[in-house]
């Protein structure tokens, strides 16, 4: 057991944070959101820096290192399918998959995150992972208020898919759960930081709102949730996404995401709903992440099945 970052991990984090400072942030995310655009520039920067190819998530430390990058990208509100491409697709297919990558499960005609921009669509059907290559015209953009570009992928493109192989469905479920939980962690921590900064600054009744105990306790509870989520995600990634740990991390992190949305918005007041204030760049995403893989109830069902053999 060792909870400290090692030198490699620290170096990766420093490098990715330096890159994100130049290429991401809420202003960029907001600008892209207005055009329902994807951040190809950020993808290129991450690829040029070697973050997508240099780390193999199936090596001993690779998964955790990739998770650290995913968390950092989410904190910086990156509009990129890096988590799906660098972690999920690579771990499920065992090789690099052309990005951007969109992930799907359940009703494949529902809005798919990055669906309109993806070159690869990795999805789950009847317990099997399948991969479809998408060309121009295979998907159409869908307007959404939930912080990412979404698209609807044509049935024809889905019909052209190929199986990723035996047991690929379970691998997809488990790695996806870890990835989405890691995105939730980065997104939650940024939403909380943003809210804390605002409430320290904003004064009402002659004092900073953040000095009221009624407010402080709620923020402290949020902090407990963020910290717990992060550690569960790290552990699941370190163990290479076993079913129970992955479902547990996702169930806790996405439940936390709901609470973080509610609390950060409630405490930020009306300004929190505006486009000029940056909270929405993260907060709205929390609910988008919460819809994947049947959301919290789906993760909990999976956790109970793994733990107690329920169906």
């Amino acid at each position: 057991m060792n909870f400290e970052l090692d030198d490699d991990q620290r170096e990766i984090l420093n490098a990715v944070n330096a890159l994100l400072e130049r290429h991401a942030g809420h202003a960029r995310a907001t600008a892209l959101a207005q055009k329902v655009e994807y951040d190809h520039r950020l993808d290129t920067a991450l690829a040029d820096a070697g973050f997508d190819a240099a780390i193999d998530p199936l090596t001993l430390d690779g998964a955790l290192e990739t998770i650290l990058i995913i968390e950092a990208v989410a904190r910086a509100a990156g509009v990129t399918s890096f988590p799906a491409q660098a972690l999920v697709a690579r771990a499920v297919a065992g090789r690099a998959v052309a990005g951007p990558v969109a992930l799907g499960s359940g009703d494949l005609q529902s809005p798919i995150r990055f669906g309109a921009h993806a070159h690869s669509f990795l999805f789950l059907v009847e317990g099997e992972a399948r991969l479809a290559r998408l060309d121009v015209g295979d998907a159409e953009p869908i307007a959404s208020n939930f912080g990412y570009p979404f698209g609807r992928i044509s049935r024809q493109a889905i019909a052209r898919s190929e199986s990723v192989g035996p047991q690929s469905g379970e691998r997809l479920l488990n790695w996806w759960r870890v990835a989405v939980a890691a995105e939730a962690v980065g997104t939650m921590s940024a939403a909380l930081d943003q809210t804390v900064a605002y409430l320290k600054d904003r004064r009402q009744f002659g004092r900073a709102i953040a000095s009221f105990q009624a407010v402080q306790h709620r923020l402290a509870e949020c902090a407990v949730r963020v910290e717990g989520s992060r550690l569960l995600v790290y552990e699941a990634a370190y163990q290479h996404a076993p079913e129970e740990a992955s479902a547990c991390a996702a169930a806790y992190a996405l439940e936390s995401a709901r609470q973080l949305f509610r609390e950060t918005h409630q405490l930020s007041g009306a300004i929190g709903f505006t486009r000029e204030h940056s909270l929405h760049a993260w907060s709205m995403r929390l609910h988008a992440l919460g819809t994947e893989l049947s959301g919290v109830s789906g993760h909990r069902r999976a956790l109970a099945a793994a733990r107690w053999g329920t169906r």
Partner: peptide, 16 residues
């Protein structure tokens, strides 16, 4: 099942 699983997540977060 949902309630049991939720409680399990709380135990695991506390453990870590």
């Amino acid at each position: 099942v949902d309630r049991l699983a939720e409680a399990r997540t709380l135990c695991e977060a506390a453990r870590m």
